Structures are given as structure tokens and as C-alpha cells.
Amino acid sequence: MKRLKQTFVFVFVLCCIACNREKHKDGNSSKGNINEISIVISDVLWNGEVGDSLRKKFAAPVDGLTQEEPIFTLNQLHDKSFDGGFKKGRNIIVIDNDAKKGYDFNQNNYCSHQNVFIIKGRSIDDIIAEIDMHSDEIIRKIRETEIDENQQRNIKLGLVNDKPIENQYNISINIPSTYSYAIQNKNFIWLKKDIPSGNNNILLYKVPFKRIEREKTIVTNIIQMRDSIGNEYIHGQEPGTFMATEEAYSPYLFMTSFRDKPAFETRGNWEMKNDFMNGPFLNYAIRDDKHNCYLVIEGFIYSPSSPKRDLVIELESIIKSVKFL
């Protein structure tokens, strides 16, 4: 009887997920904090190997942060939570241990801007195998959704006048009105947002191809480029202090593309030389063949007493709003 009840409940859940694309046409949008996943799973599985596997994949530490923070915040949901958090959650993983091994992805089925991932298997080993197989795909999709969600929230907040950036760099960029111009000259633009524990920052500048590509030591060249910009423009309160790449943590370098342009993505930590300030940074060097240069857009954070994961996503969402004109 208990088994029958569990089956009925799960069928009900799937019906709620898949039932009517029509229901979100009234503007009924998903809810939830940034970087949050709701996981529908029994206590037995959540407290065992399946839960461990989920936490290992989706709550692993974020690369590039000195303080350990999980990629996502995981919230377990029980059957009785369906009517509350479940229907409006933006990112949901359903663990079905009463179906043939498999994986399904449903988007915007119950409300708009929603991802539902269903992982199925009759044994613990089957479920863990599906988690291992599809976790990278799930992470990638959720990150895309969270960046898009941030961008929509930025637009709703109102945007900074980006005409100076457009005139100087031939791009548009959606920066929330909570930011303001700190430095603006013909070679460099710096925008800053004050937060209770510090500030969030966006930098824009250009460098010639050889500044990054010489001798093929890309990461060293990017570090030297960052440090020279910090030495010139970003100083502490005391004489002789300037922002530089922190030597104790090797930056992560990725080759990627940005609006179909080759780019280098660098994540790491900065420090204030001869001072005690530091924090994470996210740097994109985008090859602009039309203007024979790299456009460099960087976000960095100073927030010593608070979590930084969501602040990094905010910066990434701003940078990825860039469009070349």
C-alpha cells in the first residue's frame, strides 16, 4: 500500500510538471533565489548515497573563490511541499526511484522560465549513474538560466547610460543603475557599485593583439596585463598600494567564444599590493578583429565579510549582456 501511495504521488508530480504549457501564458513566472535548486527526493535517498552524489556534483566548491562556497544551494522538497515551493521553483531536480533508468528535461512546462530535470532508476546504482552522466549538462543549463534571470532583473532595475561605452568600444552593455562611473577616460572605464560589505566593479579597456598573444604564454600575459592596469588605475588608500593578481592562487584560464568571437576567460583572485584587501575577479579578453585589438571586460569584487558566489554571477551576467555594434 505504501509503495502504491508513493507511485501515485510521483505520478501526480509528473502530471503537475507536464500538464499544460497553457498555464504559464498568463505571465506566471518561476520564483526563487539565484543559484538555488529544489530537489524532490525521499528522506531515505537524500540521506544516503544518492544525496551524497547530488551534493558532490551540485554543491561542489566554486572554482576561483578563496572561501569555500557551493556552486548551488540545494533545498530538499517533500511531497507536501509540492503546492508551495515546487510549482514555482526555477530549477528543480526530481529523483524518481520507481521507474526505468533514464533522464528527462522539461522546460517551461508548469510556469515560465523553469527547468525541471527528472532522474530515474529502480536502484541506487542506476540513479547515481544517471546523475554522473547528466550533471555537467544540468549545471550548464542552470547556469545559463541564472545568468539570464540576472540579466532580466538588471533590466527591471533600470540601466546605466552606456553611451560613453558605446562610443568608446562599439558595444552595448546592460549595467544596472546601481553602478556609477568611477573613472572614465579615453583608455579606460571603471564602474562601481557600493554594497554593504564592499563593492562590485566592472572594468573596460583595449589592448593590442601582441599584449596577450606574444610568445603563446597566454595566462602570464593576461596576469601582466591586469597588473599593469591595476598599477595605473586601481589604488588603495595608502601610497604604493595597487591591485594585482594574487600570487598564492593560480588563475583558471579557459579558451571560449563570446558572440562568435574567440576569447580568453580568466578567473582568479586579486590582492592589493602592500595592503590586506583581496577578492575574486572574472576577466574576459575578447578578440576583436574588426578593430585589431582585444576588448577586455573584467568584474572584480571586494566583499571581505560576505559570500561572493552570487556577486560573481551578477558580474558574469553583466559582461555577457555585451553586444558588438
Rank of each mutant, 00 (worst) to 15 (best):
K206C: 11
I71T: 11
D136V: 11
E144K: 13
G64N: 05
E36G: 09
Y284S: 12
D52T: 13
P251C: 08
S228Q: 14
D43G: 10
E232W: 01
Y103E: 10
Q76F: 00
S317G: 08
H113P: 04
P239K: 13
I131P: 12
N150S: 14
L74E: 02
L203F: 03
V312Q: 11
G89H: 02
V11I: 07
Q237P: 06
D227T: 10
F86Y: 05
I147W: 00
S197A: 13
H113K: 14
R267V: 13
M225P: 06
S321M: 03
A59M: 09
S42D: 12
K141L: 12
R211V: 08
I229H: 02
H113S: 13
K120D: 04
F242C: 13
F209L: 07
H113E: 11
R140I: 03
E238T: 08
L191W: 00
V50K: 08
E137Q: 15
K100N: 13
Y205G: 08
F324Q: 09
D194L: 04
S30F: 00
R287Q: 15
R259F: 01
D96E: 11
I138Q: 09
I93P: 10
N91E: 02
G84W: 00
M277N: 09
L311F: 02
D83M: 05
V312R: 10
S180K: 13
R143Q: 14
N292T: 06
N47L: 06
Y284M: 15
F209D: 10
G102Y: 00
F209E: 05
N150M: 14
N221R: 12
G102H: 06
R3W: 02
I95N: 09
I17K: 07
E316R: 12
F105E: 13
L191A: 03
R287K: 15
I127P: 14
K290H: 08
I218H: 07
D310Q: 09
V296T: 11
N91F: 00
F72L: 13
E149K: 14
E265D: 06
K5G: 08
I39V: 15
F105D: 07
M133E: 13
E22F: 02
I34Y: 03
V13G: 11
C19P: 05
S257V: 11
I222N: 10
E49N: 13
N75C: 03
M277T: 03
V296L: 10
N97V: 06
I218D: 03
G85C: 03
N278C: 09
D288H: 06
